[in-house]
Amino acid sequence: MLEIRDLDAGYGDTQVLFGMDMQVQRGEVVAIVGSNGVGKTTLLRTIAGLLQPMRGSIRFDGAEIGGQATKSIVEQGVVLVPEGRRLFPRMTVRRNLELGAYSKRARPHLEQRLDFVHRLFPILQERAQQLGGTLSGGQQQMCAIARGLVAMPELLMLDEVSLGLAPIAVDRVYDAIQSIRDSGVTLLIVEQNVSRALAMADRAYVLQHGHAALSGTGRELSQNPEVQSIYLGLNHKTETLA
Rank of each mutant, 00 (worst) to 15 (best):
D13W: 09
V16G: 00
V16D: 02
M22Q: 08
M22L: 15
R26S: 14
G27I: 13
E28L: 09
V33E: 09
G34M: 07
S35L: 15
N36K: 10
G39Q: 02
T41D: 05
L44A: 04
R45H: 07
T46M: 06
Q52F: 03
G56C: 04
D61H: 13
E64V: 06
I65G: 00
G66P: 00
G67H: 03
G67V: 01
T70D: 10
I73T: 04
E75I: 12
G77T: 07
G77S: 06
V81H: 08
V81I: 14
R85I: 09
R85H: 12
R86P: 04
R86T: 05
L87G: 04
L87V: 15
M91Q: 13
V93T: 07
R95F: 07
R95L: 11
L97S: 01
L99T: 09
Y102R: 06
S103P: 06
R105K: 12
R105T: 09
R105H: 07
A106T: 09
A106R: 03
H109G: 03
E111W: 06
R119M: 05
R119K: 13
L124H: 02
A128Y: 05
Q129L: 10
G133F: 02
S136R: 06
G137E: 12
Q141N: 09
M142P: 07
M142R: 07
R147D: 05
M152D: 10
P153A: 06
E154T: 11
L155K: 01
L156V: 10
M157P: 03
L158G: 06
E160S: 04
G164N: 11
A169Q: 14
V170P: 02
A176P: 05
I177K: 01
S179D: 14
S183E: 13
Q192G: 12
Y205D: 04
G210Q: 02
G210I: 00
A212N: 00
A213P: 05
A213K: 12
S215H: 14
T217K: 07
R219P: 01
P225H: 10
E226Y: 12
V227R: 12
S229T: 14
L232W: 11
H236W: 14
T238A: 15
E239M: 14
A242C: 10
